[in-house]
């Protein structure tokens, strides 16, 4: 078996006695598309926080292409090729769409490069290609803050693509989108897989089924089960976790 691009081994995160993740192990192969589901509080976002360096695990190992990334800063991990989209679409509201994308696409990320170096035309072309692809081209000069929610989600995903990471982590990419937009997002994500390793965290079951990717179910910080959507759905433990939750409501 080839080296996994991303691997977590027995990762635990302890927030003052509350275990957000407990002995979680997971590995992803290059080009893989993986969905992660789980009820609220299952540790899905903490899982991403651990990979991107925002939260340091209490124990366990995280490695990228076989090398440990534990203790590295967020920006270092990002430069190693891990990109992340947040639960809410975090874009730079006071910059135009094109400048948001050019910022994310910048190949050199030091102050002096930004001051004295102009972007090469190949980077600029790539930015326009992405904008065309997601339909944001007419809005290139519009401030990101005045886009609609759906457009912001797309811009956030586009910024990830412009950043050209090997691993793309998407936290609820279709939250608040219309059915039509959701379907288009699914297409977009499927087209990203292959070139990139993509991890999608979602609540929307319809959307997860559309992706047709292996599903990992988290529950209370632990890995409950893995498999294709149909198998997972038939698993009594999964049903119990989800039904147990819906009882509360």
């Amino acid at each position: 078996m080839p080296t996994p691009i991303l691997e977590l081994q027995d990762v635990s995160v302890d927030f003052d006695g509350f275990f957000a993740l407990t002995d979680l192990s997971l590995s992803l192969q290059p080009g893989e598309l993986r969905s992660i589901i789980g009820p609220n509080g299952a540790g899905k976002t903490t899982f991403l926080d651990v990979i991107t360096g925002k939260v340091k695990p209490t124990k366990g190992a995280v490695s990228l292409r076989g090398e440990s990334i534990l203790g590295l800063s967020e920006q270092k991990i990002s430069r190693l090729g891990v990109g992340r989209k947040f639960q809410t679409p975090r874009v730079f509201n006071n910059l135009s769409v094109v400048r948001n994308l050019e910022f994310a696409a910048a190949p050199n990320k030091t102050p002096f490069h930004l001051m004295f170096e102009t972007l090469t035309s190949s980077v600029k072309d790539e930015v326009y290609r992405i904008m065309d692809y997601v339909g944001l081209a007419p809005y290139a000069k519009v401030e990101a803050g005045s886009l609609s929610h759906g457009q912001k989600q797309w811009l956030a995903i586009s910024m990830l693509v412009a950043q050209a990471p090997d691993v793309i982590l998407l936290d609820e990419p279709v939250a608040g989108l219309t059915d039509d937009e959701t379907a288009r997002t699914a297409e977009l994500i499927k087209s990203l897989a292959g070139d990139h390793t993509v991890v999608v965290i979602e609540h929307d079951m319809e959307f997860i089924r559309d992706l047709g990717a292996p599903v990992t179910v988290l529950h209370q910080g632990q890995l409950l089960t893995q498999g294709m959507m149909e198998e997972v759905k038939a698993d009594p433990r999964v049903i119990e976790v989800y039904l147990g939750q819906s009882d509360d409501h």
């Binding site: 967020e74 430069r79 992340r84 730079f92 910059l95 400048r99 102050p111």
Partner: peptide, 24 residues
């Protein structure tokens, strides 16, 4: 006015996002 200025505005609006984009 240039891309350096964009980075400053980015830091003002969402510093964590700037880090996750690979900038220190």
């Amino acid at each position: 006015s240039g891309r350096f200025g964009d980075a400053l505005i980015g830091i003002r609006d969402d510093e964590a996002r700037v880090r996750f984009t690979g900038f220190n």
